[in-house]
């Protein structure tokens, strides 16, 4: 599997490493994917890197690669963001993978081996949901709202109504809320806020977890929040050019 830029892998690692320390990557002809729960079983993260994400991709037999994020991060730090990355896994020797970084300008090449782990992976079945509300907005805006409100209080309430979408946090000494209304005057789709809902709803989530989820803003200019009464929120980032996505499911807090 050859990626045109290592930056994609670096950003994916950044987006999951606070939640998951080790995870199985499933490789098949469609691409590379992973699903993992954090140890507290509060967040589920799913990553899909489709064949389209790669400059070249070949997977003759489906394989599972058990990756420890810490050494993987150490290896990835050795790659420049614009260097090409080739990941090689051999079906004859499933003990490790090889990573080759290529800097075409400098004619430099570096090669690393990463030992694979035998991870007792648990796969959760996520049922298809009929969402009560969907909000799409610039991922940078969502990140700023969450980062700011997480400083105010540890509970983040998201309410959707005719007024728009309201994010509220309450701390011991202060309370803050931010309201977004659907944008009408913005041309660029990536800068638009779109809100759809069937019934008004209000749900509360842990702000520290939501903060970790906003790290994936680096992977996509837009984010979609899907909510339903008394269900986990789904926060989805679609990568450009059908390259794949990263999705998080965060369990709500209950009264």
């Amino acid at each position: 599997a050859r990626l045109p830029r290592s930056a994609v892998l670096k950003k994916i690692l950044d987006s999951v490493k606070d939640l998951v320390k080790e995870t199985n990557w499933d490789c098949n002809e469609e691409g590379m994917s992973m699903q993992a729960l954090d140890t507290g079983r509060i967040v589920l993260v799913e990553v899909m890197l489709r064949e389209a994400a790669f400059e070249s991709y070949a997977c003759e037999v489906p394989m599972t690669l058990g990756i420890d994020m810490e050494p993987f991060g150490k290896v990835l730090r050795c790659a420049g963001g614009d260097e090409k990355v080739t990941i090689k896994a051999s079906r004859n020797d499933q003990d490790h993978i090889e990573l080759v970084f290529e800097n075409e300008e400098k004619e430099r090449m570096s090669a690393f081996e990463l030992k694979l782990m035998d991870i007792d992976g648990e796969h959760m079945a996520v049922p298809d949901a009929e969402w009560g509300a969907e909000i799409s907005m610039p991922s940078s805006e969502f990140k700023k709202i969450v980062m700011d409100l997480a400083e105010i209080g540890s509970d983040l309430t998201i309410a959707v109504s005719k007024l728009g979408v309201t994010f509220t946090a309450q701390g011991n000494n202060c309370k803050g809320s931010m309201v977004l209304q659907p944008s009408t005057a913005v041309d660029k789709k990536s800068e638009q806020v779109a809100i759809s809902f069937t019934e008004p709803l209000e749900m509360t989530f842990a702000a520290p977890y939501m903060k970790m989820i906003t790290k994936a803003a680096a992977l996509s200019s837009t984010v979609t929040l899907s909510l339903d009464e008394a269900c986990p929120i789904c926060v989805r980032y679609e990568m450009e050019d059908n390259a794949g996505h990263i999705k998080y499911y965060l369990a709500p807090k209950e009264d």
Binding site: R41, L44, A125, D155, A206, Y249, A251, K253, E254
Partner: peptide
């Protein structure tokens, strides 16, 4: 104060 729910209440192992 609200209690944190776990995903096991919503999703089952495959």
């Amino acid at each position: 104060k609200a209690g944190q729910m776990r995903l096991d209440s919503f999703f089952k192992p495959q």
